[in-house]
């Protein structure tokens, strides 16, 4: 995605948020929103953001919605499992180290946040490709087995992107 396309995309997202918050879809409101969005993007790219790191990261638009749906499904599955653990009281919280094969920092960030969003696991630390995860029901301390159980399919979906 080149710079201009990226800026247009950001302006459209800002405009969408503006229109949702303003609640009255008139041309005047849209024009005010668009000019404010363009101003904000211009200010951000010219004044604040000199190093332009945003060009390094890319997202696959087709994989992302699928990923969100899978994440929501996993959140509910893990949430229902956690209810069972709360009732029985049978928990073994512990901290395990897992390793990811993802190389892109943005994808590692997505993976870590998805792990935290899933009830029962919280990411504590990240060093390169190593993640430190607090796990409610620690069944194994083995790096690969624990990684497979915690990361699940998240990593496989992200690796396609």
């Amino acid at each position: 995605m080149n710079r201009r396309l990226y800026n247009i995309f950001i302006v459209l997202i800002c405009l969408l948020v503006w229109m949702i918050l303003i609640e009255k879809p008139t041309y005047l409101n849209a024009a005010v929103g668009a000019s404010l969005a363009i101003g904000a993007v211009w200010f951000n790219s010219r004044v604040l953001h000199h190093d332009r790191e945003s060009e390094v990261f890319r997202l696959q638009p087709l994989i992302f919605p699928f990923y969100i749906l899978y994440l929501l499904l996993q959140i509910y599955i893990a949430g229902i499992q956690t209810i069972g653990k709360i009732i029985t009281g049978n928990i073994h919280p512990d901290i395990v180290d897992i390793e990811t094969q993802l190389e892109n920092d943005l994808y590692i960030c997505f993976l870590a946040n998805s792990i935290t969003l899933t009830p029962g696991t919280v990411t504590i630390d990240k060093e390169g490709q190593k993640l430190k995860v607090l796990w409610l029901n620690c069944e194994t301390k083995d790096k690969e087995k624990a990684g497979e159980m915690i990361k699940g399919k998240f990593e496989k979906i992200l690796r396609k992107g």
């Binding site: 959140i75 509910y76 949430g79 956690t82 919280p93 009830p119 029962g120 919280v122 607090l134």
Partner: peptide
């Protein structure tokens, strides 16, 4: 870990 369930699910 249990409390984080409240604000997600």
């Amino acid at each position: 870990l249990v409390a984080s369930k409240i604000d997600t699910v």
